[in-house]
């Protein structure tokens, strides 16, 4: 398999990842991505038919927590790291969807 990486691909993915790629860098980044993806493409040589994917390297299951309330953190402590807060809340620009 040989995947062709276009500037369009990089732009699409950068947008998904909420990263801004300046026009001046798109070319270089696309080239780097193409190299890395070419490395990743090597995997298509491996026959993996019938092989289960490993989600956990040592299989464990059923790790649970009991439903017991513990105190939450003081709001001031939680908001102390927020770049902007107001009225006990984190503050962001308008999110209206229209």
């Amino acid at each position: 398999m040989k995947t062709v990486i276009t500037e369009e691909d990089v732009r699409y993915v950068a947008n998904l990842a909420k990263l801004h790629v300046p026009d001046g860098q798109i070319n270089a980044l696309t080239k780097q991505m193409a190299d890395i993806v070419a490395l990743a493409d090597k995997l298509s040589d491996v026959d993996t038919s019938g092989i289960e994917p490993t989600n956990h390297v040592i299989p464990v299951n059923n790790v649970f927590r009991e439903d017991e309330v513990r105190p939450s953190y003081p709001r001031d402590e939680m908001l102390a790291n927020a770049p902007m807060s107001s009225a006990g809340c984190y503050f962001v620009p308008y999110t209206f969807d229209e």
Partner: peptide
């Protein structure tokens, strides 16, 4: 929850 109460933005309550 997003609270649209502030004049110039949105407040977030987790």
């Amino acid at each position: 929850k997003l609270l649209h109460e502030a004049v110039d933005g949105t407040l977030v309550d987790y």
